[in-house]
């Protein structure tokens, strides 16, 4: 479904990616592991069109999407839940969800989707008219995921959904994500620091270091891999 081929990207004079190739098959969960500054977030930024690659190509459903506007990419069915959540703090929970559905025009469908998502995230129903900034960290992350789902994506890009959350809360988020993946068939491309959770959730994994893919394998194989275990799983 998503094909990243040999992309290179840089921030000003600093090159962040040196030819990265990744494939995300439809319906799967693929995770990106790696240390800070390895370029994981950069890869997501390239996919969602926030950053233009200087070389290589990105294909979604067989159509080239690199160098397309973020707006067009969202409309094609890719939703990016960014690092640090990036909610609209002063706007209400409901307005945040409506912004998630910004590219859609079917009022009834949007209403139905909000209702459906409230099933996954009951807390959002309760907090409907509160400013998003007043929510707790876990609630904010739920809102960020819900907002990401509001555009009815077929591919969900998740950047560190467990960052700064208590283990119990982050386990809950992963449970919901698994449900979303299985029940709605939404493909998930996940960047995560917490390798244990990520590998138990994902089907396939890539390890990125200094802007290059160094290992790729199924989650089970990665869990067995000596280097991955030592560097990311800690046993």
């Amino acid at each position: 479904m998503l094909k990243i081929e040999g992309i290179e990207a840089s921030y000003g004079p600093v090159k962040a990616l040196h030819g990265v190739t990744i494939e995300v098959p439809e319906g799967s969960v693929v995770t990106l592991l790696g240390p800070n500054g390895a370029g994981k977030t950069t890869i997501l930024r390239v996919v969602s069109g926030l950053l233009r690659p200087s070389a290589g190509r990105v294909e979604f459903d067989g159509r080239r999407i690199d160098r397309r506007s973020t707006e067009a990419i969202v409309r094609m069915g890719i939703s990016h839940v960014p690092e640090g959540r990036q909610l609209f703090d002063e706007m209400t929970v409901h307005e945040n969800l409506m912004l998630g559905a910004y590219t859609r025009n079917d009022r009834d469908g949007i209403k139905a989707d909000i209702k459906r998502l409230n099933g996954y995230f009951p807390i959002l129903e309760e907090r409907r008219e509160q400013p998003a900034g007043s929510l707790s960290g876990g609630e904010q992350q739920q809102l960020a995921v819900a907002r990401g789902l509001m555009s009815r994506p077929r591919l969900l890009l998740l950047d560190e959904p467990s960052l700064g959350l208590a283990p119990l809360v982050s386990r809950e988020i992963f449970r919901i994500l698994r449900q979303v993946n299985r029940e709605e068939g939404i493909t998930i491309f996940l960047v995560e620091q917490d390798a244990t959770s990520a590998l138990s959730f994902a089907d396939y994994g890539y390890v990125v270091e200094t802007g290059r893919v160094v290992i790729e394998a199924t989650s089970d194989k990665l869990k067995e891999d000596e280097n991955v275990r030592r560097a990311y799983l800690g046993y």
Binding site: L50, E71, H80, F88, D89, M91, M98, L99, Y102
Partner: peptide
């Protein structure tokens, strides 16, 4: 909806872009 997009842009242009706001 337009007003919603404009307010969102004023608050957080980066996140607005990810919502598909031009």
């Amino acid at each position: 909806k337009l007003g919603l997009g404009m307010r969102a842009t004023a608050h957080n242009p980066g996140a607005s872009r990810l919502m598909g706001v031009n």
